[in-house]
Amino acid sequence: MFADLYQAIILEHYRNPSNVGLVEDGLQARNSHPSCGDKVLLSLRLDGQRISEAKFLGEGCSISQASLSMMTEAVTGQTVDEVKAVYQAFRRMLYGEEPNEELLGDMVALHGVSKFPARVPCATLGWETLALLLQLDDGSVGDDPSDQPCG
């Protein structure tokens, strides 16, 4: 049953995450899920409306860390509007909708998480943090799928 959850690409990102570190003088936000101990410090550089660099320092489970790694890869080089479209596609996927592969790329590997309600907050930790930083939430996708206690 966990073949859906622990796809090779997720474990690969967990073992060798991309973009670990801190963007000096960038935008920064901290976030955590207190009940499970997942933590992140997300930092990025905006050149106008375009993200030129995104890094994270995180601690947590494979799903949260792999999601952060994939997210920072995906958003680097994108404009805020483009990121918003990916964010919405990501959330829809975690509500159980068929993923938009064109927008989500490797992140479709996290589709399986939607079958594990207790683990959805792990997958959304990074995106929640990015949404705070860039004020991506406009209420168009409904409640945050991770709005439930974790742990």
């Binding site: 049953m1 966990f2 959850l5 622990y6 009940s35 499970c36 101990g37 947590g60 489970c61 494979s62 799903i63 594990f116 207790a118 683990r119 792990c122 742990g151």
Partner: peptide
């Protein structure tokens, strides 16, 4: 190398029910 939540999820898949987290003892952890 494996986060406790991942341990608990895989154990659950094997039919073994355990808990993961700080078990309401955060200062102890």
């Amino acid at each position: 190398g494996v986060h406790p939540h991942d341990v608990a999820t895989i154990l659950d898949g094997e039919g073994v029910a355990v808990r993961a987290g700080h078990h309401c003892a955060q200062p102890l952890h």
